[in-house]
């Protein structure tokens, strides 16, 4: 069943005297419970796509549907994890308050909120840091808080915009595994935008490769790796290497300006 449906999305930014077409014609679908990665060369309009899907930005034409309803503003049941973890947490709130705030707005009772926050923080391994302020945590831990906030929200779709681009490699591997395990345990739908080819293949069930700007879908690659993945064995599978090489080649083509065949 399709949960998220993007049809012929086009986005033109109107600048002073000059219009820039960032996204030309994007069509993609994400099924309920799927984990899909979107990769593309830098400047490929990945963030524009994600902002349109999140309802933060209005497309120039085309439409985005979530669960059959057109997205015109941020829809309920959607959580977003931004790349700039340092700027997406409320610095004046503690970790607990950060996670709890959206739940309060949802109108959940005190007991439910406490339970959800505790579960989410435990799931990301931050049960002991609930009363810290964000600046007291490392970058990786801050991004965990953002993920906990998204998870506690119990969204049907979680959007992630290059969430690990600004954390160190070690932390990044841990966080990738965290996303996989949360996804499997909670059965959410995840749309994960990244510029990292390895990351996309390691995480996703399906990788959508974008062309360079103005953006279109260049190819969709199904990732037929075993469902249980870990950093060491999965990454050394021959199939992983093949998929990685394939996506890499596509990105190279995209960089050279290749467009999808009409």
């Amino acid at each position: 069943m399709t949960l998220l449906d993007v049809r012929h999305l086009r986005k033109v930014y109107q600048g002073r005297g000059r219009d820039v077409e960032a996204v030309r014609d994007l069509t993609l679908a994400v099924g309920a419970g799927e984990l899909v990665c979107v990769v593309g060369p830098s400047g490929a309009g990945k963030t524009t796509l994600l902002r349109c899907v999140a309802g933060l930005l209005e497309g120039t034409s085309g439409e985005v549907r979530l669960d059959g309803r057109p997205v015109v503003g941020p829809p309920p049941g959607m959580a977003v994890v931004f790349q700039e973890y340092g700027r997406s947490l409320f610095p004046w709130l503690t970790v607990r308050q950060n996670v709890e705030l959206p739940l309060k707005e949802k109108g959940l009772g005190k007991e439910d909120r406490r339970r959800l926050v505790d579960e989410a923080l435990a799931a990301v391994g931050l049960a002991g840091d609930a009363d810290a302020h964000p600046w007291q945590l490392s970058g990786g831990m801050q991004q965990r808080v953002a993920i906990a906030r998204a998870v506690a929200y119990e969204p049907s779709v979680m959007l992630m915009d290059e969430p690990f681009a600004a954390v160190d490699a070690q932390t990044r591997a841990d966080l990738e595994d965290l996303v996989r395990s949360l996804w499997k345990r909670l059965g959410m739908t995840v749309l994960f935008v990244t510029h990292d080819i390895d990351e996309s293949v390691y995480l996703a069930e399906r990788v959508i490769v974008l062309s360079n700007s103005p953006t279109e879908v260049l190819e969709e690659v199904a990732v037929d790796l075993p469902a249980t993945r870990d950093q060491l064995t999965t990454r050394s599978l021959p199939r992983f290497a093949e998929l990685r090489a394939h996506v890499y080649k596509l990105i190279q083509q995209a960089k050279n300006g290749q467009r999808p065949v009409a």
């Binding site: 941020p74 309920p76 977003v80 929200y153």
Partner: peptide, 26 residues
């Protein structure tokens, strides 16, 4: 007020009151 923080508040559909008290004023 930080742009990403504003987006975050919108995504989590914070209401007027919460936006004022939790986002804009602090």
């Amino acid at each position: 007020v930080d742009e990403v923080l504003r987006d975050t508040a919108r995504c989590y559909r914070l209401g007027r009151r919460a936006r004022l008290l939790r986002l804009v004023l602090p």
